[in-house]
Measured scan of single mutants.
Amino acid sequence: DELVREILGRCTCPDQFPMIKVSEGKYRVGDSSLLIFVRVLRSHVMVRVGGGWDTLEHYLDKHDPCRC
């Protein structure tokens, strides 16, 4: 939770990309009902993408309208 909030807090946009914790390891992202699975691996916040894992920073770079 703290690492996810820290990464989201780096955004300086007036309207921050919403990530709402639904349950342990599950977050709702953006304005959709899309759920992502998150885990911490060796101090990196990882997001389940397709059949693999990606860093939360890279995921936000691709999906946050402010960072695109």
Rank of each mutant, 00 (worst) to 15 (best):
L3A: 08
L41W: 13
C13K: 00
H63P: 06
G50Q: 12
R10E: 07
P65T: 03
G25S: 10
R42W: 08
E24C: 05
F37K: 15
T12W: 02
D15Y: 10
D61S: 10
L35G: 07
L34F: 11
E2D: 15
H44D: 13
S23D: 13
V4F: 07
R48V: 03
C68V: 14
G25M: 06
V49A: 13
S23I: 02
R67D: 02
D64H: 06
H44K: 13
F37V: 14
G9H: 09
V45I: 11
I20P: 01
T12S: 10
K26H: 12
I7L: 13
K21Y: 06
I20R: 13
I7G: 03
G30M: 06
K21A: 03
K26V: 15
I20T: 13
C66S: 05
V47M: 05
V40F: 07
V40P: 06
V45H: 04
S32E: 13
G52K: 15
G51A: 13
S33V: 04
G30A: 07
R42P: 07
I20K: 12
S43H: 08
V49Y: 12
G9R: 09
L8Y: 00
R67C: 01
I20E: 12
K62M: 12
D64Y: 01
F37R: 15
R10I: 03
V29C: 09
D1C: 04
V4C: 03
L41S: 13
P14L: 06
T12K: 10
R67N: 00
V47H: 03
C13Q: 01
R10C: 03
S32A: 12
R48H: 11
G30D: 08
P18N: 10
F17G: 03
P65H: 05
V22K: 07
C66W: 00
R39W: 04
F17V: 03
L3P: 04
V22I: 12
V4G: 00
V38M: 05
K26R: 13
P18E: 11
S32M: 09
Y59R: 01
G52I: 12
S33T: 10
V38A: 06
L60P: 01
G9C: 05
H58E: 11
T12P: 03
D15K: 13
L3Q: 12
C66D: 06
V45Q: 01
L60E: 02
C11A: 05
Y27C: 01
F17P: 04
Y59M: 03
Q16H: 06
Y59S: 05
Q16F: 05
Y27L: 02
G52N: 12
T55C: 03
R28M: 13
V22E: 10
V47R: 00
D1L: 03
R5G: 10
E6Y: 04
C11P: 00
F17H: 00
C66M: 03
E24Q: 13
K21N: 02
H58G: 13
R42V: 04
D15H: 13
D64Q: 01
E57N: 08
V40A: 09
V47K: 04
R28S: 08
M19W: 11
V4R: 04
R48C: 09
S32K: 10
Y27M: 05
L3F: 09
E6G: 07
E57C: 00
E24H: 10
L60Q: 04
C11T: 01
L35D: 13
L56N: 02
D1S: 09
Y59Q: 05
R67W: 00
P65K: 03
R10K: 11
R48F: 07
V47L: 05
K62Q: 15
D61Y: 12
Q16I: 07
I36P: 05
G9T: 07
C11S: 00
D15M: 14
K21L: 05
D31S: 12
F17E: 01
L8C: 06
D31Q: 14
G25H: 07
H44F: 05
P18L: 06
G52L: 13
C68I: 12
T55S: 13
K62R: 12
S33A: 12
K62V: 14
V40H: 08
H58V: 04
K26P: 02
P65L: 03
K26I: 10
E24G: 06
D61N: 11
H44E: 15
H44R: 15
F37C: 15
C11K: 00
K62Y: 09
G9K: 11
V49H: 11
H44A: 13
Y59V: 05
C68N: 11
G25C: 09
T55M: 06
R42A: 12
V47W: 03
G30I: 02
P18Q: 13
D64K: 00
K26F: 13
E6S: 09
F37G: 14
L60I: 05
H58Y: 04
L56T: 04
D61M: 11
H58I: 03
E57P: 01
V22A: 08
L34K: 10
G30E: 02
V29I: 15
D61C: 07
C13N: 00
H58D: 11
L41I: 15
E2W: 09
C66K: 03
M46G: 04
V49K: 08
P18K: 13
H44V: 15
H63R: 10
C13M: 03
D1P: 06
D1A: 05
L56K: 01
C68S: 15
G30N: 06
C68K: 08
I7E: 11
D15S: 13
T12A: 06
I36R: 05
V47S: 00
F37M: 14
R48K: 15
E2V: 06
P18H: 09
K62T: 12
R28W: 07
L56E: 00
E2N: 14
V4L: 07
T55A: 05
L34T: 14
D1T: 04
G52D: 13
T12G: 04
M46S: 04
K62P: 02
D64T: 01
H63K: 11
R28F: 04
G50S: 11
V29W: 05
L41N: 12
R67T: 00
W53C: 06
F17M: 03
I36F: 07
L8W: 01
L3D: 05
I20A: 09
G50A: 11
T12M: 07
E2R: 13
R39S: 10
V22Y: 03
G25I: 00
H44S: 14
C68F: 13
L56R: 01
R67S: 03
D1V: 04
L8T: 07
G25W: 05
I7Q: 14
K21W: 07
V40C: 11
Q16K: 14
D31E: 13
P18R: 13
M19T: 00
Y59G: 01
G50C: 06
L56P: 02
D1H: 04
V40K: 15
E57R: 01
V47A: 07
R42F: 09
T55F: 09
I36D: 02
D1R: 05
P18Y: 04
M46V: 08
S23A: 12
R48G: 09
D61W: 08
L60Y: 02
D31L: 11
D64L: 02
R5I: 06
G50F: 01
M46L: 12
R28L: 12
V29A: 08
T12I: 08
C66L: 01
S23H: 08
F17N: 00
